[in-house]
């Protein structure tokens, strides 16, 4: 008796329509598990479910003449921003809250640059006086510096 009951459990079928239908039916509102059809299938039987309504052809084309100046300006900003692709911090698709504002130059002024160059000359002379060898790396540096932007 006990052996018969165990066998019955082993061969018991799954839900109506089989195991495969349950998950697919729950996700898509379709499939053999009719007891699990979704709202889509109930409201529009046989209609293919989709994620969002597709625009009609006429909705994809805007008549330029029908647009106001404000709409044209907004469209121009969007196009320029997408073409810019973030290369300009002042127009990188809203990631820069200071877009359009003038920002200070963070480099050195002409006077500061001249003063630093004077310091560099002094340091070079000090290094040579301390025994540094001039010219060991120079050919390679010259070759690579020729590719630097100016």
């Amino acid at each position: 008796m006990g052996r018969t009951a165990a066998a019955a459990v082993f061969i018991a079928p799954g839900p109506p329509g089989g195991w495969w239908g349950t998950h697919a039916a729950w996700r898509l509102g379709r499939g053999p598990g009719r007891q699990l059809v979704g709202l889509q299938e109930v409201l529009w039987p046989g209609r293919r479910a989709r994620m969002w309504p597709m625009p009609k052809r006429e909705q994809l084309h805007a008549e330029i003449d029908a647009l106001s100046e404000d709409q044209l300006a907004a469209a121009r900003v969007v196009v320029e921003s997408s073409q810019n692709n973030g290369s300009d911090p002042s127009a990188n698709n809203g990631s820069d809250p200071s877009a359009g504002r003038a920002r200070p130059y963070l480099g050195l002024s002409d006077a500061e640059r001249a003063a630093q160059q004077e310091s560099m000359r002094e340091l070079e002379e000090e290094l040579i006086a301390e025994g540094a060898t001039l010219g060991r790396y120079l050919p390679e540096l010259e070759r690579r510096a020729a590719t630097w932007p100016e």
Binding site: R113, M120, E124, L127, A132, R136, L141
Partner: peptide, 21 residues
């Protein structure tokens, strides 16, 4: 590297009107 720094300073002095930042 004193040698490398010396050569850099020399090269920058002759070729560029720039700054180190």
């Amino acid at each position: 590297s004193k040698d490398l720094l010396t050569d850099y300073l020399n090269m920058l002095k002759r070729r560029f009107d720039g700054s180190i930042l």
